[in-house]
Amino acid sequence: MHLLSYAEMEAMPEPEWLVEGLIQTRSTALMFGKSNSFKSFLAIDIGLSVDTGRDWHGNSTISGGVLFVATEGANGVGRLRIPSWYQHHVVAEEDRRAFLYPQEICLDATDDVTALIAAMNIRGNFALVVIDIFGGSMKGSEIEDKTARAWVHGIQRILRETGASVLVVAHTGWQDDTRARMHTHFWGSFDSRLRVEGDKEAMTANLTVERHKDADSNGSWGFRMVQAGESLVPEQDGSVKPSKGRNLTVRQRIAIQALDEALQAHGTRKTGPDWPPCNIVLIDHWRECCDRHGVSGSDKADSRLKAFNRSRDSLIDRGVIRIYDGYVWRCFDD
C-alpha cells in the first residue's frame, strides 16, 4: 500500500472529462427522472457518443468502449434503440462497437461483479458502463443500508479494476420527484447527479447537472425526441428549459441535501389537515445537518445560524419546502 506524501497529493492531476461538463473519467454518475421522461434514450445517446468519439451535442468526449447493462427491455435496447442511433448518425458497421449485457445483474453480489469485470477485461478496454435500470442491478432492496454498501463497493471495484466510468439510470420516487428512489447511501455515493425532466406528449426532455463533487455544478441541455427507424433519438433544442424553480444555488442544494439526510435519520409523519402525506422533520434536526455540511462555510455559531436562515427563507420563497409548527418538509407539487 502506497501512502501519498503532501507533495504527491499536491501533484495529483485535475479530473478529466469523459463527456465534457457531464461525466468525468473513472467516476460514477446518476441520471434520474420520472418514468417516460426519456432517460434511457439520453443514456444511449451519451454512451454511443463515447463509443464513436463524437461530440455530445457540442461537448467533447473521450472515445472508448461502452457496455450497456440493460436490466429491463434488453431486446428493445439491443435490437432497436442502439441500431437506430447508429443509423441516424450514419455510423459505419465497422465502427459500431458497443456491447450489451442483456439481463439483470446483482452488483451487490461479489461473484456477479467479479464475472462482469472478467468479461469486460476479455473484451478490451472500456471507458463507460451504462446501467439501466438501477432497481434491476441488485438482489437486495434499494432502500436497505446493507444492500447499498455492498452495491457501492461493487461499483467502486468496476471503476478500480477496469478504469471505466459508470452511468446509472434510476427512477424518482412516487411522491418525491426531486431525487432517485434509493437509500441515502446510494444517493450520496455518486460523483455526479444528472436530473432529467421529460414531457411525453411534447416529446421533449431536459437534462440538468444537479451536482458534481469535484467540478462546478452547472449545465443544462434541452432536447426534442425525433423518430429514427423504430426508435427515438434526442436532438438538442435550446427552447426546452428545466421546470421553474429547479435551478438552485450551491448553498440551496447543500441545504436540500442536508434536509434529505435529516428526513432519513429523523423523519416522522403526522395526521391531520395541516400535515402533508410525506415525512416531516424538526427544523432543529435539519439545521444540525446543515451545520455538518457547512452551509455557511464558517465556524462561528451566529454566521451558521444566519446562513441557515437565509437558505431556509429562500427555499420557502421558491416553493421547495414548507414549514409548520416547528417541522419542515419537501414540496413536490411545483
Rank of each mutant, 00 (worst) to 15 (best):
L3N: 09
E8N: 09
E10H: 07
A11P: 04
M12P: 00
E16Y: 00
L18I: 09
G21W: 02
T25Y: 00
L30I: 08
K34N: 11
F41P: 00
G47H: 01
R54S: 13
H57K: 10
S60C: 04
I62E: 11
S63V: 09
F68M: 11
A70L: 04
V77E: 00
V77H: 01
H88D: 05
E93L: 12
A98F: 01
A98K: 00
E104F: 06
I105W: 05
D111W: 04
T114W: 07
A115V: 08
A115Y: 09
A118I: 01
A118P: 00
A118T: 11
M120H: 02
N121G: 06
G124D: 08
A127E: 12
A127V: 09
I131G: 07
I133C: 04
G136M: 09
G136P: 07
W151S: 03
V152M: 08
I155N: 11
R157W: 09
R157L: 12
A164Q: 00
W174R: 13
Q175D: 14
Q175L: 14
D176E: 11
T178S: 14
R179C: 04
H185T: 15
G188T: 10
S189F: 03
D191N: 15
L194A: 04
D199G: 06
K200W: 10
A205P: 04
N206L: 01
R224W: 01
R224M: 06
M225Y: 03
V226L: 09
E230Y: 09
L232M: 13
E235N: 02
S239K: 10
K241Q: 14
K244P: 01
K244W: 05
G245W: 07
G245L: 07
L248H: 11
R251M: 13
A255I: 00
A258W: 02
Q264V: 03
T271K: 15
G272S: 10
D274C: 03
I280L: 12
I283L: 14
D291Y: 10
R292F: 10
H293R: 15
G294A: 08
V295H: 03
V295S: 03
D302Y: 13
S303E: 15
L305H: 12
F308A: 06
R310Y: 12
I316C: 02
D317Y: 07
R318D: 13
G319E: 09
G326L: 11
Y327D: 09
Y327Q: 10
F332D: 09
F332R: 01
D334M: 10
